[in-house]
Design a protein around this nucleic acid. Sequence first.
DNA 1: TTGTATGCGTTATCAG
DNA 2: CTGATAACGCATACAA
Lengths: 337, 337
Amino acid sequence: MQAGRLARIARGEPRVTSVDVARAAGVSQSTVSLVLSGKGQGRISARTEETVRRAAEELGYRPNAAARALRTGAARTVGFVVPDVTHPFFGKTMRGAQEAAWSAGYSIALVDVPLDRPLDAPLEALRAGPADGFLYFSVEPPASRPGGESVVVIEADPEGVPWVRLDVEAGTDAMMDHLIELGHRRIGRVGSQVQYPTFQLRDARYRAALERIGEPPRFAGSGFSFDDAARAAGLLLDAGDSPTAIICDDDLLAGGVYLAARSRGLRIPEDLSVVGFDDLDFARVLWPPLTTVRAEAERLGAVAFETLAAAIAGEPAEAGQVLPVSLVVRGSTGPVP
Amino acid sequence: MQAGRLARIARGEPRVTSVDVARAAGVSQSTVSLVLSGKGQGRISARTEETVRRAAEELGYRPNAAARALRTGAARTVGFVVPDVTHPFFGKTMRGAQEAAWSAGYSIALVDVPLDRPLDAPLEALRAGPADGFLYFSVEPPASRPGGESVVVIEADPEGVPWVRLDVEAGTDAMMDHLIELGHRRIGRVGSQVQYPTFQLRDARYRAALERIGEPPRFAGSGFSFDDAARAAGLLLDAGDSPTAIICDDDLLAGGVYLAARSRGLRIPEDLSVVGFDDLDFARVLWPPLTTVRAEAERLGAVAFETLAAAIAGEPAEAGQVLPVSLVVRGSTGPVP
DNA sequence: TTGTATGCGTTATCAG
DNA sequence: CTGATAACGCATACAA
């Protein structure tokens, strides 16, 4: 029994196949395939081609993706693995990847993998075939990739895997230079508590800058939520010898710092300067508007997809790419009190 | 020639199939299928089953999704169509849908369809088979759905299609009651400029409430960005007889109202009360914290997916579901000046 | 220029 | 309890 067909018929779905089109056009199925895949260039007569196209059109024919995938071994779908779909920065990156994917005829399948969970079932499902490759955003790709499954990593620079990331070193340097120029010396950092390379890189630059001015680091780790960041910032703010400025790994964290400052009656930037990272839209509606490092999320996504597409196509992939960032000075930073 | 296999071999990918497992286990391929699909209950001996499982495990066998989809007619993937992946509310809804999808063994394929574009290629690609059904969030599903393709609509209540939406009427009523109780009468509304049902419903309630107190509506349409909302709010604020309170279709729009108020030297809530909708995370970090209508985005996504799954399974779907919302009073609303 | 034949990896029927 | 065998719909080598 043809389960598939039956199931569809049960749903009242008379799928039209290339055989139907062939019959309607009075040609063979292979001719239909040739015509519609465009590979009949100069092999199929214009008349036949026309007939086939018209028949396909009239019947509302759409090639079956599963059959094509089975036959060609390519699903024209890539998986996008993120630790939190909810984060606006991921959203923008996804959109960039989407756009690029579409123009290449690919779809994007989304996989949200909360940081605290193992890479489990959903991802495995995709790895079983529906996806031709994967974009891992800030998440560790699985160590074992049977059959050299194509992968590119975003915001990390692992060995042996092509990656795309922001120039977080330059970003961190710019933050620190800006603050130091304003006279700050006790500079704290509210950063990600998860140890991804992008954050480690920033930490290194942060510490290097402090070392140059002979100051100790003041770090507090946080999860990516306003509340947790507020808690982390509180740790810094309530310590003796508290910072006059705080840099953050993310605008979200900076928002938490605003919350912490507010609940302690600290004014920004008069009592405390704050710098974010990403330039999310809401950075401008904060009061005062947040000084932050601008990153082009869409571009990051697009470049990542293109790198992946190249890898899938078997082209030699660029090993690593670093995208520029720039400091946007707004109202949350000022001279040291 | 077997293009698929060749392509994979070229990429150095020796895919292991059920035939390989069968050979390794010394049984037939159909036995392997029976065992691994769990449909061999009481038909396959425990010994054989064990052997097969071990062989599959050792070879790292993973059933080919394309083949399965071709055979069964189900891809176990649903498309999620949104007008803007970048919006945090969509992100949360997606996450809710994701979670539900995973526990049902489904993947979610994301389709971002900017409002100003037709539903084009990317969606069509998914409609060609890779997706078993679609979740349309605030976007009009295509009128023609060949073969009764399964669909559920989020945040709208179209005829003839199952839908899930928030109780925006109750939300709007709550906003208006709250403001009127505070003494406001000149109440403006910054709302979506696109005319989706969810927004029309709100508009109707807004106008009804005003009518009861004998006030004219003050409406300005906006796109979903801070800047555009600021522009729209400006229209209201700069008019003679300007509102003392503004309700918004979305927290994002409310953020824009903050911007507009700020640039005009208006204090919130002393000079202007503002109410948002959605209770996005950033609503709390705004200053003053935003009074808004809380909606459970994750739940919305989960319910939508489950409704879709039921439809795909051919179960009689619930026609429409309305999810409750609640007003969260924070600092952006106060007595009329 | 077109048609025939074959196989992609599954699932599911049916015979043993 | 297990093994042949036949599709699923498409792409392509090869024959005509």
